[in-house]
Design a protein around this nucleic acid. Structure first.
Lengths: 216, 216
DNA sequence: CAAATGCAACGCAACGTTGCGTTGTGTTCT
DNA sequence: AGAACACAACGCAACGTTGCGTTGCATTTG
């Protein structure tokens, strides 16, 4: 039932991304933005299974033939819609300390996974990875690109002496982000207030008791 | 002839009434085991979306009506099938040290997520959590029960002085298991040989550089 | 004009449901 | 004991519905 209850995607609707038809860049239907909006809206509302091409066509005021002429499948359509979605663009932080950066990073992730309407899109998309190889490819690229953008956080930390130079940044990110995913989606437990600082502290300082600490 | 053959025992279909049958086990259709097997097989083969009730009926040599008489939906059927699946029962380890236990635990998880055929079932099931609230409930219970069974690992570690008494065990498990999930499913990267020991070492000792370590 | 879109219909598969007949296994009644 | 019965479970066939993805042809639009 809910109609356009979002309202923040609208602003960037005319972002001129797919508008270059004559020039010959990225092609797409004339109303591609409407189609993408409808796709993400419906994904958020009904999940990946409930997302239907015919539903998208109806909401975006487009014939379903048009959609099929440009994208061969539901996965491809969603992939294209996500590519244009700025909602998942998270700026990597720079707070001055590694702990601060990681806390900001994890906090952003938790927010993305819990705060509607972005959370509906994010959770449904990541959950659909196991169903659509096409989507899986997009998600893989997304994570790879994100990792690249987060690299400076760790470079700075090494420069500050907060991190051993041979540390694997991806492992740290995976530990933190993975814990958030597991907690929110699989365990379906609320994220306590201190989840973020505790997780970061554990990853940085360890949970080991006060026994010996082998120096490097 | 009497024509009251069906439709009146709706109330006692699933749930409470699954008692003694000739087989002596938990009941359902006579060939429930065949049905469950077919369900998990097809799930592994085609994923959650490709899993169809009619496919299960065909493979298990049962009419689809029979399946619908006992389970109202695909999610319910899969939930029932998973309940009987012993493949996901992982014995919590007891190696003598916390590090050893956690490595064993994480190794089991990584194996479960990567080694067919169990991995197909596990990945598809966990991925389907975002699509079926019914399944989500089962998964939540599964994780809760697992956490309970893993508790002794941490109790022993505290007793040995390897872990501060106020440590949150679930956080450690979530960090490790979440990282595995993210690495395997979302990033779709291979798990390196030393992933397990490195992850455990990070969680126990921290990734912080050799600066000061605040002593408790 | 030509490309893009609209439209209507199609075959296909799976959904979930229904009515009715059949099987199998106990129970009861001579 | 053996025939008759009761009843739950099962099979079968068909139904209407939805969504998929496709096709041929008319119409709009730049």
């Amino acid at each position: 039932m809910s109609e356009r209850r979002d309202g923040q995607r609208q602003g960037e609707r005319y972002g001129a991304r797919n508008r270059e038809r004559p020039g010959g860049g990225t092609a797409g239907p004339r109303k591609s933005q409407d189609i993408f909006d409808a796709t993400l809206d419906l994904l958020a509302e009904k999940g990946y299974e409930g997302l239907t091409v015919e539903g998208v066509a109806q909401r975006s005021q487009v014939n379903k033939t048009t959609i099929y002429r440009w994208w061969p499948s539901k996965g491809a359509l969603l992939g294209a819609a996500l590519t244009g979605a700025r909602q998942l663009d998270l700026e990597p932080p720079d707070t001055g300390s590694l702990q601060g950066d990681l806390e900001a990073l994890l906090h952003t992730i938790v927010t993305l996974l819990t705060a509607p309407p972005a959370s509906d899109i994010a959770v449904a998309t990541l959950g659909a990875v196991t169903h659509s190889p096409e989507l899986a490819g997009h998600v893989r690229e997304f994570f790879a690109e994100r990792m690249g953008r987060e690299q400076p956080v760790f470079d700075r930390a090494v420069a500050r002496g907060e991190l051993a130079a041979d540390t694997d940044p991806m492992l740290l990110v995976d530990l933190l982000a993975g814990a958030a995913w597991l907690r929110v989606v699989l365990r379906q437990l609320p994220v306590e207030k201190d989840f973020v600082p505790r997780a970061v502290r554990t990853v940085l300082n360890g949970a080991g008791a006060v026994t010996e600490r082998h120096q490097l």
